[in-house]
C-alpha cells in the first residue's frame, strides 16, 4: 500500500472547506475568463477540481510517476478542449470525465484492466462468523480489499460512497449505463464483504 503515503485526511478536509469558501466564481465565469486568455482562471479551475481528479487517478493508477503524467495530461486536455464545454454538466464533472477516460485509455494501453477481472469477484463460499477482528485491523483489511478491486469498481465505489455522487453524475463521468453502475457497485460491495469474511474465517482457524 505504498501509495497510501500520499493520502492525507487533514489536507483533504481543508481542501473541501477551501473549495466551498473560495470558489465563488461560477463555472461559466471561470470558463469565460480562460477563453479570454486568463491562465490564472485555469489555475483556479485546477485548484477547484484536483481533489476529485486525485480520487479518480489514485483509484485507477497505481504507479506514482504515471499519476503525475496523467494528472498533467488530464488538465492539458481540459485546457485544450474547454471551448467545447457546453455547460450540460458541472465543470468538475466534465473534468472528472476527462480524468476517467484518460486513466481508462492508460490502463487499456498497458493492458492493466480487463473486463474479465469482474468475473473472479464475489464467488467464494464462506461461512459467516461473529466479529473477531478489531475495527482498526478490519479497516486495514477493507482498504486492502478495495485496492484489490479492478480499477473501474474502485472508482465507482469512491464516487458513490465517498464523493456522494448520484448514479446520474457517475453516468456522466463514466458513460456506463445506470444499471451497469448499480450492478458493479453491488458486486464490489459483495466482494468486499466476502473478502472480510475470508479474513474472519482465517482468524477463526
Amino acid at each position: 500500500m505504498q501509495h497510501f503515503c500520499n493520502i492525507n485526511n487533514d489536507g483533504l478536509s481543508n481542501a473541501k472547506v477551501n473549495l466551498q469558501n473560495e470558489n465563488n466564481d461560477t463555472d461559466q465565469h471561470l470558463v469565460g475568463k480562460v477563453l479570454r486568455g486568463d491562465t490564472l482562471a485555469f489555475t483556479r479551475i485546477i485548484k477547484n477540481t484536483e481533489r476529485l481528479v486525485a480520487q479518480i487517478v489514485f483509484k485507477m493508477i497505481k504507479n506514482e510517476e504515471d499519476r503525475k503524467d496523467i494528472a498533467q495530461d488530464i488538465y492539458l486536455k481540459a485546457y485544450k478542449n474547454i471551448s467545447g464545454f457546453r455547460f450540460h454538466s458541472k465543470l468538475s464533472t466534465w473534468i472528472a470525465r476527462i480524468a476517467y477516460n484518460t486513466c481508462l485509455t492508460y490502463l487499456e494501453k498497458k493492458k492493466l484492466w480487463l473486463p474479465g477481472d469482474f468475473e473472479s469477484l464475489g464467488h467464494q463460499a464462506i461461512d459467516t462468523t461473529e466479529g473477531m477482528i478489531p475495527a482498526k485491523e478490519r479497516s486495514v483489511i477493507i482498504l486492502g480489499a478495495i485496492e484489490k478491486l479492478p480499477a473501474v469498481l474502485k472508482t465507482l465505489i469512491t464516487l458513490y460512497h465517498n464523493e456522494d455522487m448520484s448514479y446520474a453524475e457517475i453516468q456522466q463521468i463514466t458513460s456506463l449505463p445506470e444499471g451497469t453502475i448499480k450492478s458493479y457497485l453491488f458486486r464490489a460491495r459483495k466482494a468486499l464483504k466476502e473478502d472480510l469474511l475470508l479474513h474472519y474465517k482465517k482468524e477463526e482457524l
Binding site: F4, C5, N6, I7, N8, N9, G11, L12, A15, E50, R51, A54, Q55, V57, F58, K59, R67, K68, A71, L143, I146, T158, N162
Partner: peptide, 8 residues
Amino acid sequence: QPEAVFDF
C-alpha cells in the same frame, strides 16, 4: 477511506 491528494 482516506481521501487521495496529489503530492505535487
